[in-house]
Simulated scan of single mutants.
Amino acid sequence: MRLITFVAQGRQRVGALLDEDTTVVDLTAAAPDRPEFGSMLALIESGPAGLVRAAELVAARPTTALVDPKAVRWCAPLPRPPRVRDCALFTEHLAVALREMARRQAAAADDPDAAFDQLIASGRFTLHPLFAERVLYYNVDPLAISGPDDTIAPPEDATELDYELEIAAVVGRDGRDIAPDDADGYVFGYTICNDWSARDLQLKLMQTGVGAGASKDFSTTLGPCLVTADEVPDPYALAMRARVNGEQFSLGSTASMTHTFAEAIAQFSRIGGVYAGEVIASGTVASGTGFDAGRHLKPGDIVELEIDGIGTLRNQVSL
């Protein structure tokens, strides 16, 4: 199923897309007495039984619960996930991005080339071997989740907004000490993630050595829908694209991942466990930012991230 969260009659609802995404079955309205349709998180936590009930409603297509998707406001499929980890499942992008950060930091020096060589020699802008050995991640603020067609504004004192093209897996059930061979069975579904960055602020903050902080936490966009795992035969063979005002800026593939979602789930389950509804974002695919290409977003730009089998996540940069 292709599941969405949307607002109708003043409240959030859970729906399933039909007819090539031209119709929505409002699951909340179709079964108002069923707690599993109170929110997307409730549906995920209800387990296989909830999905079976949802599939029955989709098959029945109750006419009183059919909605025009263009007539309602879509939200992030999981507006308030219990946890979000942004991982380095793609490592190729990181190596390129670190060198570009060093080059930009060195640009203000009297001898930029010499300053760049010194920064690279410091090791701070070279990808650490640990990235290839295990899944590294940082925690994303789950209170700063945005959705399809939301307008995205940079944080205070930042002007250089950038997109990051990512795929995310949503965990379907709680688990601890999960065997790697069993970890795929813990994926509920997949969505698109735009891990927005304020590049000018990020470059300043990273010089402190304490991380990106406010340059990342202002907004992370998920959507447009949450596609259940059974509808994604191979999550590691999906084309990924980013367009700005209709022009393609980025092209990549999930085939270039260094680590899989199963590896991430198995690793995380050994340290505190994983929980139904938590989001595991992949990190950025190679070439998946404007920063990589030396291109900058402008106020009013329309950014579209597209992944085969999931859809297109669209947002506008604030004016």
Rank of each mutant, 00 (worst) to 15 (best):
V274M: 12
G311R: 02
V303A: 04
G309W: 01
A264D: 06
I302P: 01
L297R: 02
F268Y: 15
A262N: 09
S287Y: 12
A262L: 08
I280S: 11
A262K: 05
E306R: 03
G290N: 07
V279Q: 13
D308W: 01
E278A: 10
P299D: 05
A281T: 15
K298W: 02
L297D: 05
A281D: 14
D308M: 01
I271P: 05
S287Q: 13
I265A: 09
V285N: 10
V279D: 10
A262D: 12
F268Q: 13
G290E: 06
A293F: 04
G311T: 03
E304T: 05
E306H: 06
G283K: 06
D292W: 08
V279F: 14
G283S: 12
A264W: 06
P299L: 00
G273T: 06
E263M: 08
D292M: 08
V274K: 11
T312M: 00
I265M: 06
A276L: 13
G309I: 02
A262C: 08
R295M: 07
D308Y: 00
A293I: 01
S282I: 05
G273N: 09
H296M: 11
D308F: 03
F291P: 03
Y275R: 15
E263C: 01
L305E: 03
D308H: 04
A293P: 08
Q267A: 12
V279K: 15
T289M: 09
G300D: 04
G311K: 02
I302V: 13
R295N: 01
K298E: 04
Q267N: 14
S269F: 09
D308P: 01
H296G: 00
I307W: 03
A266Y: 07
E304C: 04
F261W: 15
A262V: 11
S287T: 13
I265S: 09
A264R: 13
F261E: 10
L305W: 02
H296T: 07
R270V: 01
I280Q: 15
A286I: 04
T312Y: 01
L305C: 03
A286D: 14
T284A: 07
T289W: 06
G309M: 02
E304F: 03
A264I: 05
D292P: 03
G273H: 13
T284E: 07
V285T: 15
K298F: 01
G277H: 12
E263A: 08
I265P: 10
D292Y: 11
Y275V: 12
G277D: 11
A276V: 08
F261A: 10
K298A: 10
V274Y: 13
Q267Y: 03
I310T: 00
V303M: 10
A276S: 15
G300Y: 00
G288S: 08
G283E: 05
I302D: 08
E304S: 07
E304K: 05
I310K: 03
S287H: 15
P299I: 03
G288T: 00
I310H: 01
I310M: 00
G273Q: 14
S269V: 02
F291H: 13
H296P: 00
F261L: 10
I302A: 11
